[in-house]
Nucleic acid binder design. Structure first.
Lengths: 149, 149
DNA sequence: GTCCATGCAAATGATTTGCAGTATC
DNA sequence: GATACTGCAAATCATTTGCATGGAC
């Protein structure tokens, strides 16, 4: 999803194209592995566009979530974080999961389809139709060398 | 973990045994599938002990989390929820996961060891040592009959 | 020119904290 | 009796909202 595609999407949805909206999306897209908080996005956008307000950042994020261009992640550290969405590419909703280091706080994303098997089992057994999932694995990354701390 | 065991644990840790602490733990333990919010726990305890304060409930929950007697769940609905802990039994940390109905909001817990395979794979490939995990599956429960929103 | 979008400041709401009184040990 | 625990009210902090101005179309 490049800048022009995004502008077109906004127009198609009857939404207005503003600098703020473009810059917020680009800030999130430019840090695919950093899992930014709203405040961090605000600070990033302010570099290029100092007059933006925090409320606009929140409102834009809300809109991007509804358009499925960004995903929300909650690491339970008191901040809600955002990353460029899996749905932003298209078709196959390739969810990715998160490895969270309990020592340094680093978040590593990874892909895996192992859950599909599990989901099939649950649908069969419980009659529960699964449409989405979120997986967080907590542990210690290579650098923090297993359990050191 | 019954009431007496809990009292003993508190003593062993050098903590004082109070009605408030016993009642908060019992409120959470009595609703193993309801995933209560702090406010709900507060209301439950108030029935038997009207003078309790909400701050005490929060402080007690904090303590119970540290003792691994309760677990925290975040359904991203703006409330943090608590349930009686998997570690409260013992030895084999049998995590359970959550099925969350997008239509009625019901939360169903289930056990599965499928992730062990995945965790082994990640430890081998990434050098990331996993010690805990959280899985949330979103969808539609039997009663809400697949997708009938 | 119309209205949606923005910025600011004030409001909200869950959780935390300071402090003086109270209960446990 | 000392000190940890509690209740209350005030503080905190992320997020939301009201409203008047500004910008997109």
């Amino acid at each position: 999803m490049d800048r022009e595609q995004f502008k077109q999407l906004l127009k198609d949805k009857g939404l207005k194209v503003t600098n703020q909206r473009v810059l917020v999306l680009e800030a999130i897209a430019s840090c695919p592995d950093k899992h930014l908080t709203a405040e961090e996005i605000y600070e990033l956008v302010k570099v290029d566009y100092p007059e933006i307000g925090l409320a606009t950042v929140y409102r834009t994020i809300q809109m991007l979530l509804e358009l499925h261009l960004v995903d929300r992640i909650n690491l339970d550290d008191g901040y809600v974080r955002y990353e460029i969405g899996s749905g932003s590419t298209d078709t196959t909703k390739h969810h990715h999961h998160h490895l969270i280091c309990l020592s340094c706080g680093k978040v590593i994303s990874f892909e895996d389809d192992l859950l599909e098997e599990l989901e099939k089992k649950i649908t069969d057994k419980e009659g529960f139709q699964i449409v989405d999932h979120e997986v967080k694995l907590y542990g210690y990354c290579k650098e923090c060398g297993g359990k050191t701390d």
